[in-house]
Design a protein around this nucleic acid. Structure first.
Length: 895
RNA sequence: GGGCGGAUAGCUCAGUUGGGAGAGCACCGGCCUUACAAGCCGGGGGUCACAGGUUCAAGCCCUGUUCCGCCUACCA
């Protein structure tokens, strides 16, 4: 039966379900997430990596946003003007795909309904289901300023996009040109280089014979040249064969012609440095329209471009008899035909990295087409410098090199996409004179010829173009807003390393160019969340841990704390349910500790005033001192983005110091007869709980908020309370030493009891032989605690070996020898075995130390401090050994 | 091909100027001790991947080797 006091207080187990929704609503209602712009406070701002509107919260989002929320809650409590800007990304291809699939279910394609209607459909979809992920972020407890939520295609951001495009165009940094680009035949659009994934797959290298043209053949020369290719179908678009200029084997053939099999085109043999004579046969087929290298070779040698693929990667008329075939079908047919004509020399197994569309995994096709590009070098240079000079610091710093590498080898950015959903390129072509006008708003007539017959560019911009502006476009740019003034540059960007190039680098470039300052002072790159075996989570492998499911199961606080505790820099997070379960236990532990403390002190409103050093016991000083160290540790760790260190430190402190020792030590006082003592120990318990809850709040917002309101006298929310500040006057070194000794003594007795198999219910007698006055005094002072925590009935102090009890179990430390005399209960031979083992250990250690001290070089070269330490260690070990031996002899006699 | 990171207890990892090998989980034993069995108490367990080197002293610094990740790249 629970007591009346218990009933009034907290339920026995924490039920997160209603607490989480209740407090989130309360925070929203009170407007606690809303940024203020108070001149007296420093600013702390972040922009969320905008999830795709199509997104569903996955474990990566959970990690990313948990870390951001921890930081922003910490800073908010620590007195900053905090702003965390939330929002979503329109995610061009991804979103278009979703709506196209819906259309397909109705038997329609986007072309059936037309561009305008299609875009309407996408907006409808967005209005209906686009906000899902935002709701999920709220479940996670994210304290974003929802009043400032943005969308990359809302009106303001679209205006920023047009502004940037026009300015870059006017500065000559955006141009349009015919280039070879990566084409996704499924998405029907160009892709930027980094939107193409390369993974190694098994393939073949086919060796094909290209006959030398009749008129160029001489009697001594070869009949054909053998070229190697992984993609035989592209031969239909060949316009040359290249060899290295220094390659003696082919020297005579340069300038002559070959007959391209199957299509019988005459193609020249050319010499180009690019060709590696060591690879394959040293002769390369050149397909200018369908290979990046060949494109470059063709430009150098002025070769024609033969386009053999259409938008679906089906063969065009240029491919003659193969017209209309799919590229892979054509590959088979080409090989068959070559074989039939005896032109297939041989084939080899070969691993190759075929490029795949990062959205749909279709093998991309290099393709020639007219696209818009950003001239990247003038933008990349300052972005590179800013990191080199430390204006923006990348954490962990290992990524700096990768960033530099990429920034120095970067190619122009292809920004046009042949899809419909996105920011339409603000360029209009005059149908009459062909003049292209780039403008912020649609021009009425052609500035060249005055024609009103203008057609807007049908392409849209790469999704990442608008994301690149996110840190300033969300703050109101191009207007000069107060937000920009207050919060730009933002303080920190927290994101996953896999979008370092896609996003971070581009924000750096755009921020520096348009705001003339870095977009953020710190970039913290976190790892990927993997499964317990280190495998990437994927639906097909079935190893996905769904954050929503586990939040339902274990509560949001447990999930958040787990993610933080495993967020070690530079390492992937291997997550398993077991770990989350473990931290749910921690949530429960906090709950129950609070329950105990509140049972005794729910009415003690002035507990903070009662905590005065001069009135405290050593245990109370000790816990304050430990708290103090935990506060500093937590702050430092958070300031350095060591979320794991902060989380684990709090766990260790709260569970293993506050609960295991302080609360246990204070129980006698809490329910004792001395009201003054009881008040103080209640006050300290409350004070430490109060501080701990505030330290834990950024990690576990819900349970801490709930408990906070049960503390006496709390009316405001914990999320706007003060984050604990260092109080050096709460460091008590003397008390720390004393309690550590007490812990050793209690553990020692417990150890003896456990080894002798004494029932926890029965009490023992303990005899102490302290090695110092301080130790003796401490034992004296803490008799009561020892009695309770080690279940000791009576204690006795002796001054020398003479008083030692015969036939006792012992525990020997540097400061004190402990004996538990248990006539009849001690198995003496057992006890001797234990001592023997102990003696072995000490002897071994002693031998090591003696070896060092016997080494002249050590004495000569090691720092005096170290030598001294070793000497002290030797003495301590010798003393200990002597005591063990004495006790051993005594047992022998007793036997 | 280039670059980066990792190898420490059964598992996941920490170990910050080189000077006493640690945590959590798992495991074993004992306890329903009035906050918590989602708990308490106690315990076992490691040639710090391998081979050299520097040093009085190496998990830590240097060289090489093996294995495993990841990023990046235009060898057809």
């Amino acid at each position: 039966m629970p007591s009346r006091a218990e009933e009034q207080l907290l339920p026995k187990a924490y039920d997160f379900r209603d607490v989480e929704t209740r407090w989130y609503e309360e925070w929203m209602k009170k407007g606690l997430f809303t940024a203020t712009m108070d001149r007296d406070k420093p600013s702390f701002s972040m922009v969320i990596p905008p999830p795709n509107v199509t997104g569903v919260l996955h474990i990566g989002h959970a990690l990313n946003n948990t870390l951001q929320d921890i930081l922003v809650r910490y800073k908010r409590m620590d007195g900053y003007n905090t702003l965390w800007v939330p929002g979503t990304d329109h995610a061009g291809i991804a979103t278009q795909n979703v709506v196209e699939r819906q259309l397909a279910a109705e038997g329609l394609t986007r072309h059936d309904i037309g561009r305008e209607k299609f875009i309407e459909r996408v907006w409808e979809w967005k209005a209906k289901s686009g906000g899902r992920i935002i709701e999920q972020l709220k479940r996670l407890g994210c304290s974003c300023d929802w009043s400032r939520e943005r969308f990359t295609m809302d009106e303001g951001l679209s205006r920023a996009v047009r502004e940037v495009f026009v300015r870059l165009y006017e500065e000559g940094l955006i141009y349009r040109g015919d280039y070879i680009i990566n084409w996704c035949p499924r998405c029907h659009t160009a892709l930027a280089d980094i939107e193409v994934d390369h993974d190694l797959s098994k393939g073949k290298l086919w060796y094909i014979r290209y006959p030398v043209a009749q008129e160029d053949r001489d009697d001594s020369g070869p009949e054909y040249v053998v070229v190697a290719t992984t993609r035989p179908e592209t031969m239909l678009g060949d316009t040359a064969v290249a060899v290295n200029p220094d390659d003696q084997r082919y020297k005579a053939l340069v300038g002559k012609h070959l007959i391209l099999p199957l299509v019988n085109r005459r193609i020249p043999v050319i010499a180009d440095e690019h060709v590696d004579p060591e690879f394959g046969t040293g002769a390369v087929k050149v397909t200018p329209a369908h290979d990046f290298n060949d494109f470059e070779i063709a430009r150098r040698h002025d070769l024609p471009f033969v386009n053999i693929f259409d938008v679906n990667a089906k063969l065009t008329e240029e491919a003659g008899p193969y017209k209309g075939m799919d590229r892979f079908e054509a590959r088979q047919k080409v090989l068959e035909d070559l074989e039939a004509q005896g032109l297939l020399d041989h084939e080899e197994e070969y691993d190759l990295a075929a490029g795949k569309c990062y959205r749909c995994k279709t093998v991309v096709e290099p393709k020639l087409s007219k696209q818009w590009f950003v001239k990247i070098e003038p933008l990349a240079r300052p972005a590179l410098e800013a990191v080199r000079q430390g204006k923006t610091r990348i954490v962990p710093p290992g990524w700096i090199r990768t960033y530099e590498e990429w920034m120095t080898n970067i190619r122009d950015w292809c920004i046009s996409r042949q899809i419909w959903w996105g920011h339409r390129i603000p360029a209009w072509t005059c149908e009459k004179c062909g003049h292209v006008t780039v403008a912020r708003t649609a021009p009425e007539k052609c500035p060249e010829c005055g024609s009103r017959d203008l057609v807007q560019e049908s392409d849209v911009l790469d999704t990442w173009f608008s994301s690149a502006l996110w840190p300033f476009s969300t703050l109101g740019w191009p207007d000069k807003t107060r937000e920009l003034e207050f919060f730009y540059p933002t303080s920190v960007l927290i994101t996953s390393f896999d979008i370092l190039f896609f996003w971070v680098a581009r924000m750096m470039m755009m921020g520096l160019h348009f705001m003339e300052d870095v977009p953020f002072y710190y970039v913290y790159l976190h790892a990927l969340v993997r499964d317990a075996q280190g495998q990437k989570m994927s639906k097909s492998k079935g190893n996905v841990i769904d954050p929503l499911t586990i939040m339902d199961q274990y509560g949001t606080d447990a999930v958040r704390f787990t993610l933080a505790a495993f967020a070690a820099q530079g390492r992937d997070i291997k997550l398993s349910e077991e770990r989350i379960q473990g931290y749910r236990h921690f949530v429960n532990k906090i709950w129950n500790a609070a329950r105990l403390v509140l049972m005794h002190g729910s009415d003690l409103k002035d507990y903070e005033d009662l905590v005065r050093p001069e009135r405290l016991s050593s245990a109370e000083k000790w816990i304050l001192s430990r708290l103090e160290r935990t506060i500093s540790k937590t702050r430092t760790a958070l300031d350095e983005f060591n979320f794991d260190v902060a989380a684990k430190g709090l766990y260790q402190f709260f569970w293993h110091e506050y609960c295991d020792w302080y609360l246990e030590l204070s129980k006698p006082d809490l329910s004792g007869q001395n009201p003054r003592r009881a008040d103080i120990s209640r006050a300290v318990a409350l004070y430490v709980l109060d501080s701990s809850l505030r330290l834990l709040h950024p990690f576990m917002p819900f349970v801490t908020e709930e408990l906070w309101h049960h503390l006496p006298g709390k009316t405001e929310c914990i999320m706007v309370s003060q984050f604990p500040k260092p109080r050096p006057e709460h460091i008590f070194q003397e008390a720390e030493r004393e309690i550590e000794l007490l812990k050793t003594i209690i553990t020692g007795i417990r150890n003896i009891r456990a080894e002798l198999g004494i029932h926890p219910g029965s009490k023992v007698r303990a005899v102490f032989l302290p090695h110092s006055e301080a130790a003796g005094a401490a034992i004296e002072r803490h008799q009561n605690e020892i009695a309770i925590l080690a279940r000791v009935s009576e204690t006795e102090q002796i001054a020398s070996d003479r008083g030692k009890p015969r036939g006792a179990a012992s525990f020997i430390t540097e400061d004190v020898e402990i004996f538990v005399p248990l006539a009849g209960l001690v198995d003496i031979s057992q006890e001797m075995k234990k001592l023997e083992k102990e003696r072995g250990k000490v002897e071994k250690e002693l031998a090591k130390v003696q070896g060092k001290l016997g080494n002249e070089n050590f004495l000569k070269k090691a720092p005096a401090e170290i030598v001294k330490k070793e000497k002290e260690k030797k003495e301590a070990l010798e003393a200990r050994l002597e005591k063990i031996q004495k006790h051993f002899r005594m047992l022998e006699e007793a036997e």
